[in-house]
Write a protein that binds this DNA or RNA. Structure first.
Lengths: 207, 207
DNA sequence: GTCTATACACCGATAGAC
DNA sequence: GTCTATCGGTGTATAGAC
């Protein structure tokens, strides 16, 4: 493993835990087994390092989605179910991802570097694909006539937020967020909400 | 308005935007019209200031929930619908709240001050009340047999995450998150998801 | 490619005058 | 209750030896 990859791994874990402003390059250097100055041989600046971390993560997500959709040609509903299933797998397999992803969504982006543009573009691509998938589902009548944008927001909340919720989320669950049991349960709960809603009614009789 | 309240207002807005580590006391002082040193006359430390901001926000939320539940005695389902309605109103009326709330959920808490304990306790109270409400709904058969914990996580995602999602969320929506139209739409979309789910099926015929 | 040494700005916090 | 001045520490980033 190259020094560069080691730095990226360490930085990913630290940025996920405490955010961009919460991490100093001294911590990154110590955990990488390098000196602070050596970091600047591999990355121009702290900001570039951060966005390289984000870029690597987004590329990984895109690859996973691309591979999971290999058996495409299915109906939008089946594709959406596989999208959710795959997303939860990605988030659960790499616990740094949900927190990094959530931070990148709502942390302020003031700087303008080429890397920042690239991350923004990739993020927009991923989100745009998902939104179009929902829209196709509505158009072909498999999904109720929902707002694709609001539905996407809800799905992000139900997946990314859930696995990023850390101590508070574990306090609510009473169990480790990332245990195999709870991950499987999360899938079931989200899918059954999409299938049946929450309320029991004439349409959804109690079991 | 006292200096103390002015500082709290300014700090709330800044912490919401860039987080605890992302804000220096110099910015807080400048925006308050005071010198840095004067902040220490009103607050022992940066950490105490931060937790006073969180405490004030959580007290506000508890008051709103208490007032909204005045006509209680209703069924759990009606109470839950009012809870969601009121939560979205709170989040939409004070745009700093969703971001502050989301940060307080997934930002690491290493320090141990009396104020930090108080915020944790109040947060647990609010979440516990909501979870018990969901559980009652399941027990009396108004809600499907869901996991109360997972459902609460989903509801937080659908509300707090949504209004905290900033530029990315506005990019998805294509509109200001906090406009009256989009807030009303958010309520409708969340409620109808809970009522009907997402998928059209035998149980949920297309309209 | 990695290091030590260093530059310079800002950090949170304190002292003490007014 | 607010200020100026200052403390020691840390922040990102650079220079230059090896």
């Amino acid at each position: 493993m190259t020094s560069r990859d080691k730095i990226l791994d360490v930085a990913e874990s630290l940025f996920a835990r405490r955010g961009y402003a919460g991490i100093g390059l001294r911590e990154v250097a110590d955990a990488s087994g390098l000196s602070k100055s050596s970091l600047f041989h591999h990355f121009r600046s702290k900001e570039q390092l951060y966005h390289e971390v984000l870029l690597r993560m987004l590329r990984h997500i895109e690859e996973r989605f691309a591979a999971a959709a290999i058996a495409a040609g299915d109906s939008p509903r089946a594709q959406l179910e596989r999208w959710i299933d795959e997303l939860i797998d990605i988030l659960a397999e790499h616990p740094t991802i949900p927190r990094l992803l959530l931070r990148s969504i709502f942390e302020e982006e003031d700087a303008v570097s080429p890397e920042a543009d690239a991350t923004e573009q990739r993020m927009a691509q991923i989100l745009g694909d998902a939104e179009r998938l929902i829209r196709r589902g509505v158009e072909c009548g498999e999904l109720r006539p929902v707002s694709a944008a609001h539905t996407l927001q809800t799905l992000i909340g139900a997946t990314v937020y859930h696995f990023a919720s850390a101590e508070v989320g574990e306090g609510i669950l009473g169990r480790p967020l990332f245990s195999a049991d709870e991950v499987a349960r999360r899938k079931r709960e989200v899918l059954s909400l999409l299938q049946h809603g929450l309320f029991v009614s004439q349409e959804n009789p109690a079991p």
